[in-house]
Design a protein around this nucleic acid. Structure first.
Length: 357
DNA sequence: AAAACGGGGCC
DNA sequence: GGCCCAGTTTT
């Protein structure tokens, strides 16, 4: 036990780092990316786990490692295939950025995975958190990670209500994290802090009884922990109206690749019309997409509401019977059975399921 | 500095 | 229905 200097005051501390590393050794979860120190696998796991729970990301990690055992395999992969494997995980720019970063490693780093924080952060999709995670876990560099878990644990431990989504908060908690880490097993230190956040110092009903930090935790001792951490911003949810057209004939179907700087960039969808309010059937019938094709009938199928963090999407689905498929620059005509080969938004997957396709 | 970017689990 | 998850990039 000794004192450390934090925020210009001396705080009683029982060697914070040793304590959490000891706890980690006893309580860490058995996770596949913890069985080795391959920077490629560490990187893959870190990208997958951004804004994603371990339980959700785990099967994706296994799929990628099996499909692409090395960074070289990943770099040589087709982006559409990488996205297809990513299907359902969300934040698809992560997959596109990984593919880009893999080629950066092959071209700019001679196929050798970068070894330092400074180099790692140059990779696309690798920010301060991920660079610190890889550098500390794979290469024992003493750099502190600050993720959602660390914000929660430290804001409670120091009873600090500085908003974590303010630039001041980002700097403050990075500074605190930097002061706590030691050169001895920095990777374990970082993982320990996150593991405590994930398993003990949870957002709701934290298990302070079994927390190795509770005796010196100000948030616990002052009973303020349930109000920490503080976030200042509110997310605003926009409402969008999508009308999807299911053109199908003799086992063929039209799909379209999304390439705008928008949701689902790089994924495939059914031909779609976006309107600023729910589209009525009369407007649909006289829409250019319908008028310019040999349409025999239009049949309403179903409506789905797709709720996301920043968007609430109201989707209507129509089955359109065609006399024939006309040549078209915006849509691709594929065998319906091949839909499995394309990365589709979960909304489309849901539609195909409920409509028994 | 703020907004955009998915999907799922928990309460 | 709101919050949050091993955050980063773009505006």
């Amino acid at each position: 036990m000794f004192f450390i200097k934090i925020r210009n005051t001396f705080v009683w501390n029982m060697n914070f780092s040793k304590e959490i590393k000891g706890w980690f050794a006893r309580h860490k979860r058995d996770l596949p990316w913890r069985t080795q120190n391959d920077p490629y696998q560490i990187w893959l796991s870190e990208i997958i786990l951004q804004q994603t729970r371990v339980a959700q990301g785990l099967p994706y990690f296994l799929k990628y490692i099996e499909k692409y055992p090395t960074i070289k395999d990943f770099a040589n992969a087709d982006l559409d295939e990488v996205l297809r494997i990513w299907q359902g995980l969300g934040y698809y720019s992560r997959a596109r950025n990984m593919h880009f970063a893999a080629q950066q490693i092959m071209n700019e780093f001679g196929g050798e995975f970068p070894r330092t924080y400074k180099e790692l952060i140059q990779l696309k999709g690798v920010g301060a958190y991920t660079a610190a995670a890889i550098a500390s876990i794979a290469y024992d560099e003493k750099v502190a990670v600050v993720d959602g878990n660390v914000y929660r644990v430290l804001s409670r431990y120091f009873n600090d209500a500085t908003p974590i989504d303010s630039s001041e908060g980002v700097k403050l908690f990075q500074k605190l994290a930097n002061e706590l880490i030691e050169k001895e097993n920095p990777g374990d230190h970082n993982q320990a802090l996150m593991e405590i956040g994930a398993l003990v110092c949870t957002p709701k009903n934290p298990d302070c009884e079994n927390c190795p930090l509770s005796s010196s935790c100000e948030g616990f001792n002052k009973n303020t922990f349930s109000n920490l951490p503080v976030k200042s911003k509110k997310v605003k949810v926009s409402e969008r109206y999508f009308t999807f057209l299911h053109f199908e004939c003799k086992g063929k179907i039209w799909i379209q690749k999304r390439e705008a700087k928008d949701i689902w960039n790089g994924l495939f969808q059914l031909p779609m019309i976006e309107t600023d309010q729910k589209m009525n059937f009369q407007d649909l019938k006289k829409h250019e997409i319908i008028e310019s094709n040999n349409v025999k009938s239009i049949e309403y199928r179903t409506s789905l509401v797709h709720k996301l963090t920043h968007q609430k999407i109201f989707a209507d689905f129509y089955f359109v019977e065609l006399g024939n498929f006309k040549e078209n620059n915006t849509y691709q005509l594929i065998d319906k059975i091949d839909l499995d080969n394309y990365a589709l938004p979960k909304l489309i997957v849901n539609y195909l399921e409920v409509s028994n396709c």
